[in-house]
Design a protein around this nucleic acid. Sequence first.
DNA 1: CGCCAGTTTGAAATAGATCAAGCCCTGTGG
DNA 2: CCACAGGGCTTGATCTATTTCAAACTGGCG
Lengths: 250, 250
Amino acid sequence: MATSKPIHSFKTPCEQCPLRPLPHFREFSRDELEFVSHFKRGELAVDAGSTILVEGAHSAHLFTVLAGWGFRYKMLEDGRRQILNYIMPGDLIGLQGTIAGEMQHSVEALSSVSLCVFERDRLMTLYNKHPSLAFDITWIAAREERILDEHLLSIGRRTALERAAYLIAFLFERGRQLSLFNGRKFIPITQQHIADTLGLSIVHTNKTLKKLSERRLIRWQEGGCEVLNGEELMAIAGWEGLGEGKRPFI
Amino acid sequence: MATSKPIHSFKTPCEQCPLRPLPHFREFSRDELEFVSHFKRGELAVDAGSTILVEGAHSAHLFTVLAGWGFRYKMLEDGRRQILNYIMPGDLIGLQGTIAGEMQHSVEALSSVSLCVFERDRLMTLYNKHPSLAFDITWIAAREERILDEHLLSIGRRTALERAAYLIAFLFERGRQLSLFNGRKFIPITQQHIADTLGLSIVHTNKTLKKLSERRLIRWQEGGCEVLNGEELMAIAGWEGLGEGKRPFI
DNA sequence: CGCCAGTTTGAAATAGATCAAGCCCTGTGG
DNA sequence: CCACAGGGCTTGATCTATTTCAAACTGGCG
């Protein structure tokens, strides 16, 4: 399994980037846009279930998600898996490889995913020539950190029901910010993924989700979760949301 | 409680920084050193138990830890607390305030702590004038992310015994890298802190630590934990360690 | 048709939480 | 010098959230 198609020579010009017009992302200056356009080396398209990056590998690339859903995870030697966070359009992945030499986690696609490919080697040029973009990269890393903090709070101190409510509300909020839902508020995820994110067994996860379903907050469909009441999920979790405001991306 | 002394006008010149000579940190160029020296605005000294930053506050400052131990945490409304990570010399704190406007977590001192104070406003100058330092800040953020990933794996998927072993090994490794131990390998921490880091109750934490004590891997002393066998703790946790190599700091 | 991944359910086992006390040490105030 | 209060640690007993085990159901798909 987990085969990824070769990197396309085809590339969407950054000037026509489908993400840029979204209200969630900050504007680029002409200058920045031009640099990023050169920085981008190609596009990668993978199918649902493919592995995008593997723990331990030395990848020469950085990626920005153009479309689709995926997740980052780590495993223990005996196979226990922990999902660390989800990746969605605008997210930068592979930065960790820059500091540690090799990836410390794996990344897998939940849906079909397409990614912009950058060369890690040229990152220093970005820092030298475009301080504003350099700052954006720091911003993106700090944001990921903030989200991990919240996940940690969730796994460490929330009950199973609160955790599940938090996770679904979180994914829903992220999708909403990215204008990902056309009518059907659908998250392409399996109960096993939810279990591995929340640190619960799949059986208990199933029973917990059933409680949320009975309260008409979510509905489970083939291949994912439909959100019926995001507000109430946030209330159960005691979670404030992601905050408004525009964010950068590369 | 939690009173912090006013920011000292007194400042250790960066040229005489006690951290710089440590083998764990990367060298600075003369240029970088000069800039950082100007960037630094003063020093802050707080006692054990003091709050250094509070969730929700708008701080105008960034800090680098010069000496001492502390921790970052978040709380739920009903008082449940989750410790997110520990801060030690060389760590940068307050960066999150830059991206979210306000702090998303609090920081408290475990021992007496002294900090270098920087003005957040002048961060952009650093990005404009010193790309190498800008990159270092990203590096530091990405490193924190990596550590949070590991914590998440721990809380989500390791057993209580494994978690405790991981945490103590982790703190021990960090202290060792920083040459913090002179003979006595002592971590200034309370069992309540360990419980709030591992997502366990204090009673169960106590019983778990007792098992580690009985195996002669640690010894509990007044006010903290003495590490007797870091190797074996890592083995129990199935944890590889932090990796060698120098790291930057500001 | 039969297989497979994902979901669902019930029953038994257990890790960890909660409850309740007691202990030790240090600091404080009479 | 003693009393006592408080924080941190320890321990045993009971309770419960969650895991594990086992089995069956569903809908696609070759």
